[in-house]
Amino acid sequence: MAITFKGVTYDYQAGTPMSFSALKNIDLTVPDGDYLAVIGHTGSGKSTLVQHMNALLKPTSGSVTIGEREITSQTNNKDLKPLRKEVGMVFQFPEHQLFEETVKKDIMFGPMNFGKNEVEADQLADQMIDIVGLPENTADRSPFELSGGQMRRVAIAGVLAMQPRVLILDEPTAGLDPQGRTEMMAMFNRLHQEQGLTIILVTHQMEDVANYAKHVLVMDHGEAAKYGTAEEVFTDVEWLRANNLDLPIATQFAHQLTQRGANFTTVPLTTAELAQELARQLGGKRHE
């Protein structure tokens, strides 16, 4: 399901003296099956942008097309429910939205709300408990007695149980331990690879962008400041520095070496890519 922005502007408190444009004339296409990372500083418009992708916000001007549905300032709020099922949103700290007595009931809430019967929802919940890596015996426990990392998984399972075709993730791994972070990002990537789920990831973690994203959008003061593949975006080191954005650490390391005089044919984005390039150069020399 593709998502297209055409000339989207969004004003908070429109029509008042406090009016403030959080998005300015955004044109963007997210093709079906894409993995898009949205990066930028706090307040750059990242969250406002993604909230247009399931019509939580409607553009002040311009239009957003989500699959077959076009959303404009005139769109009626009434029949947006099917859209919310197709586009799942995992907010920051989604564990704050848990409310049911048991983990299973919490995960079943979404699918039942969207018309699944209890048996179907129960099966979906079991599946999702497995997919997100929760121990089986947590199903009947209160979500509030779990650890922070497990609560996060419950909340994500609840969104996945609605079987969305697009998944929006707003800083999904903030506060998880490094191993939990790696596991969770690998889980999202599996869903992306195996089920063709379109993923939109809002993040400060450049390593995750380097490891997973097909495309990167840099937001700055409500504008789409840069768009391209991860390699295209991270190649422009000077621009990123000027805008106080971080590079993936492997890219940064390669950049330092380049300044000393080293040569890289391609820009390494991950530690593995960097090691391969270095091993090739070091190994080659050894045989000379």
Partner: peptide, 17 residues
């Protein structure tokens, strides 16, 4: 987290450096 320099060292070792 394993520091970056240690990760790189491990990857390089795997590749015979």
């Amino acid at each position: 987290d394993v520091p970056f320099s240690s990760q790189l060292a491990m990857e390089l070792k795997k590749l015979g450096v």
